[in-house]
């Protein structure tokens, strides 16, 4: 009888959690028409100031009329207004491509995919433009190839949905643990609930861990100048190790003054002036 009374103490907590998670999935969406199909969990959706959308639409109008420089300016202003949106980066990449600035185009397609890994248009355009750059770098490092494959696969899941799955698994585990602590019987139902919750939690935690391993956020960068001499030391007098061209992706390992130590997908390493690349 006392254990029943103790278990009743769990109900408010369960109710509160259910309400929050329920609200997260039940809140109506406010996506613009025609926007990419990928949506964040509704609780996270936050519309930006109207000015960002206005500037974005101005950029689109300029693009349609072939005024690509003006389109670039409008998209950049939309970004300054806080429009961290995959579509803005994608359209900006298109405008840069039309202006012949391949490095900037690739940079913005990469940023678009970083925000929305399921943006198929950005993926296609990135592939198309990557065929036009001078350097053809094939990943020789097995770790880089594995990470790239996993990144593309996990990109389809969506970090936010993963977080919710992790949270629900965690809650289920805690609920079953509290139930058992308060003397609840180990029935088939509670054991099944425990196994499901544990699987969900461990699965989501593993995917989160793998995502962190493969993430190159803050390290991957794009060469923005037509040609860079990459040197063995961070000095203009150092011997040239190899030459990179516009649009090539590199990974920054560390920085020293105005120089960055980078490596390419095929494992070449060297120093280059930091201002000639831009981190994705």
């Amino acid at each position: 009888m006392k254990s029943v009374r103790m278990k009743r103490q769990l109900f408010p907590a369960i109710a509160a959690f259910s309400l929050v998670v329920g609200a997260a999935s039940a809140e109506p969406t406010s996506n613009p028409p025609g926007s990419p199909s990928l949506q964040s969990p509704p609780i996270l959706q936050r519309s930006l100031p109207e000015s960002a959308a206005v500037l974005y639409n101005e950029g689109n109008a300029a693009y349609r009329e072939g005024r690509y420089s003006e389109a670039v300016t409008a998209y950049l202003r939309a970004l300054e207004a806080g429009a961290q949106n995959s579509a803005v980066y994608y359209n900006l990449g298109n405008a840069y491509f039309r202006l012949g600035r391949i490095g900037r185009a690739i940079l913005n397609y990469e940023r678009s995919l970083r925000l929305d890994p399921r943006n198929d248009d950005a993926r296609q355009n990135l592939h198309f433009v990557s065929l036009l750059i001078t350097d053809r770098v094939e990943a020789q490092d097995i770790e880089v190839r594995v990470q790239e494959t996993i990144r593309q696969t996990l990109g389809q899941i969506g970090a936010d949905w993963l977080a919710i799955a992790l949270s629900i698994g965690f809650f289920g585990l805690c609920l079953v643990a509290a139930w058992w602590l308060l003397g609840g019987r180990r029935t088939g139902l509670t054991i099944t609930a425990f196994v499901l919750a544990a699987t969900l939690f461990l699965g989501s935690a593993s995917v989160v861990g793998v995502q962190r391993w493969v993430s190159d956020a803050g390290r991957a960068a794009i060469v923005l100048t037509s040609q860079i001499e990459v040197r063995f030391e961070p000095s203009t007098t150092a011997k040239v190790a190899f030459v990179l061209h516009e649009g090539t992706k590199v990974w920054v390992e560390r920085r020293e003054e105005n120089w960055a130590l980078v490596h390419t997908a095929n494992g070449l390493r060297g120093w280059l002036p930091e201002e000639l690349i831009e981190v994705i």
Binding site: S30, N31, P32, P33, G34, S35, P36, S40, P41, I43, L44, Q45, R46, S47, L48, E50, A52, A53, Y56, N57, N60, Y63, R64, A78, G82, A83, Q84, N85, S86, A87, V88, Y90, N91, N94, A95, F97, L115, D116, D121, Q124, N125, F128, V129, A159, D160, A163, I164
Partner: peptide
């Protein structure tokens, strides 16, 4: 390259993750 994304009434801040 594929064409640009269409106009939008409002833009979602996609950098805001859970």
């Amino acid at each position: 390259i594929r064409f640009i994304q269409p106009d939008a009434v409002a833009l979602e801040d996609e950098a805001r993750t859970i």
